[in-house]
């Protein structure tokens, strides 16, 4: 009993086609690098040839196998305590991954929620949240992190919380800006007319539309967070030894650099660089891919 006799032609499942074409040009290199690091982190127990935290003092400062004095037993050599560098790098990936991802997610959740609240509620809620954000942003991130680490003491999960507390403000800023334009959209006004509560509107209409931006930002933040974690470990207020973190390895190896033990610093440095670079490349790609779509919504 249709009111109008016309034939309505709907496009045949456009979504699948456009989704496939949208993801057609994945940046393969960063994805492969991140996948390898993630693989190492997950299967560290199986992959690592030695225990990363126990070394043999008889086998200190062994170079990688291709240099004279190197053995196939320690492919990438050993450190000042005779621990296997390859094993430490593999387990270090786990620390970097866990710290990086959880800190980024923690910061993202806090920042997005506060950003939505500030942007949508406006008024005093906006004032309070944004003034805190401004004050927060005015503090130098690393100094602030060191200060927090000094208070709560070093542990891996403390580092996660510290990094989350340091970096949530960036999400809050971006998300609030997005929400300010979203809340003027007609679908939000119609939701008010339909009788939706503020909480419902924020959850059902605002949140799904800012998630894209938050994800893009998270990918870009991953690099920043990993570098900060490495810096904290390097400065001795990060993940406590003997846990193998890349930043910590860098810090431990620095005395050896002058006397030719280059592998102790260059190898973890390369790992950090590759991971940060991949995360940033992926973030850039996502930003380009998701942004135009966001604007035309």
């Amino acid at each position: 009993m249709s009111m109008s006799s016309e034939t309505i032609v709907l496009p045949p499942s456009v979504s699948t086609r456009s989704a496939a074409s949208r993801l057609g040009d994945l940046p393969m290199i960063p994805i492969i690098i991140l996948a390898v690091i993630a693989f190492m982190a997950i299967f560290a127990d199986v992959l690592a040839p030695h225990n990363p935290e126990v070394g043999a003092l008889t086998a200190r400062f062994k170079p990688p196998f291709w240099q004279t004095g190197g053995t196939m037993d320690h492919i990438l050599g050993t450190d000042q305590l005779g621990r296997d560098v390859l094993s430490r790098l593999i387990f270090g990936a786990r620390v970097s991954m866990v710290v990086g991802f959880t800190a980024v997610i923690f910061a993202g959740v806090v920042g997005t929620v506060l950003g939505i609240l500030a942007g949508y509620l406006g008024g005093w809620a906006d004032q309070v949240i944004m003034r805190i954000t401004d004050a927060w942003l005015a503090l130098p991130a690393l100094t602030f992190a060191i200060f927090l680490a000094a208070i709560v003491g070093p542990s891996m999960w403390n580092i996660v919380i510290i990094l989350g507390l340091v970096y949530w403000t960036r999400y809050a800023r971006v998300v609030r800006g997005e929400v300010l334009s979203l809340k003027e959209r007609e679908f939000v006004r119609l939701a008010i007319v339909a009788g939706c509560s503020k909480a419902t509107i924020m959850r059902r209409h605002i949140l799904p539309n800012v998630v894209n931006s938050a994800i893009v930002l998270a990918t870009l933040m991953l690099g920043v967070v990993i570098v900060t974690e490495a810096s904290l470990s390097f400065l001795g207020v990060g993940v406590p030894p003997p846990k193998p973190a890349w930043g910590l390895m860098l810090s431990d190896g620095k005395q050896g650099l002058m006397v030719g033990y280059w592998w102790l610093t260059v190898l973890p440095g390369c790992c950090i660089m590759l991971m940060v670079l991949s995360a940033n490349l992926l973030g850039d790609w996502l930003r380009v891919k998701l942004d135009p779509q966001l604007r035309q919504l």
């Binding site: 006799s5 016309e6 034939t7 309505i8």
Partner: peptide, 8 residues
């Protein structure tokens, strides 16, 4: 009214 939509 003109029924339908313009073609792709």
């Amino acid at each position: 009214a003109i029924e339908g939509q313009p073609p792709d």
